[in-house]
Nucleic acid binder design. Structure first.
Length: 278
DNA sequence: GCGTGAAAGTGACCAGAGCA
DNA sequence: TGCTCTGGTCACTTTCACGC
């Protein structure tokens, strides 16, 4: 493959000529946590934050649910890691393994989380974005028999990372990516807000509580079988306005390959539950 | 520190019972 | 004959704990 002028081929692909490629273990250290014995009540419920690997999905960790005591900390292999560590899921047959997060507060972790310590030679947020974009690579690196693979500290320390030459450039990249994340989150919040507005409008417009301009001026309301509706609206059964036809469950023995999907009653039921639960 | 067994939780899928 | 609901099974996921 031809490499453009100003770039070079490295272990992590083509990168700018003035960037470096280093193994994580070459520029920082990492550690794994532990779980105090759950059989000892005195170890739990203190004021030290203790993070489970499931909480890696928070991505930016400002708070966790678990709490342990000083005694629990002393009598287990967990340890307090400072803020701005890069946290990586080590174990688990599910999505947790390879998930990357960054902590905004000092905390302890369980043994399924590796914490990469921050130092002055790199920008933690840059490393977070870099490793966060390599989830697939973490999964392949750790894939094991029966879907139950595992990462370990040696594998993490041996991972190559492309590093811009200055902390200023690392910060600029991290900031640009964080800004993009913030924009996406803000758009998601806006969409959720619009959904709520639409839900409210549906309630009002579909029941006639609110009429659109040009409709129903000067009209009152009346009581019907389905509640109070505008005076000029009608109440009809579905059968009166549309033909109804019932289907039936097709036994699996009669299923054949074809272009028409089959919807089962239990699937409808499941779908309905899902919609209601949201 | 690491690998792995075991247990618990969750959700999808499916079959069958009871009823109209 | 078809509808609705319930419960069983299975796969997947997460967590904890223990031995090496």
């Amino acid at each position: 493959m031809e490499v453009k002028p100003g770039y070079k081929q490295t272990e992590v692909g083509v990168i700018p000529e003035d960037w470096e490629v280093k193994r994580i273990g070459d520029f920082t250290d990492c550690t794994a946590g532990g779980t105090p014995s759950t059989k000892v009540p005195n170890y739990w419920g203190g004021d030290i934050r203790w993070m489970r690997s499931g909480e890696l999905h928070l991505k930016e960790v400002d708070e966790v649910e678990g709490r342990i005591t000083e005694e629990g900390l002393r009598n287990s292999s967990t340890k307090i890691v400072p803020e701005n560590c890069i946290l990586i899921g080590l174990a688990g047959q599910g999505k947790t393994r390879g998930t990357v997060a960054i902590n905004r507060i000092p905390l302890c972790t369980n043994q399924s989380i590796a914490a990469i310590f921050p130092n002055k030679s790199f920008v933690p947020k840059y490393l977070f974005h870099n490793l966060n974009s390599r989830y697939k690579q973490f999964r392949e690196l750790s894939s094991g028999e029966g879907g139950r693979g595992g990462l370990n500290l040696t594998l993490i320390k041996s991972m190559y990372v492309p590093l811009p030459p200055t902390l200023t450039e690392q910060t600029a990249i991290a900031t640009a990516l964080s800004d993009a994340d913030a924009l996406i989150q803000s758009l998601e919040r806006l969409i959720a807000k619009k959904r709520d507005v639409k839900q409210g409008a549906m309630q009002e417009l579909l029941t006639g509580k609110k009429r659109l301009p040009g409709f129903g001026e000067g009209k009152g309301y009346k009581q019907t079988e389905i509640g109070v509706i505008p005076e000029d609206w009608l109440v009809k059964t579905i059968a009166e306005i549309a033909p109804l036809q019932r289907g039936f469950d097709l036994p699996t023995t009669q299923l054949k390959e074809g272009s028409y999907p089959v919807v089962y009653s239990n699937v409808m039921s499941t779908l309905n539950c899902r919609i209601e639960s949201r």
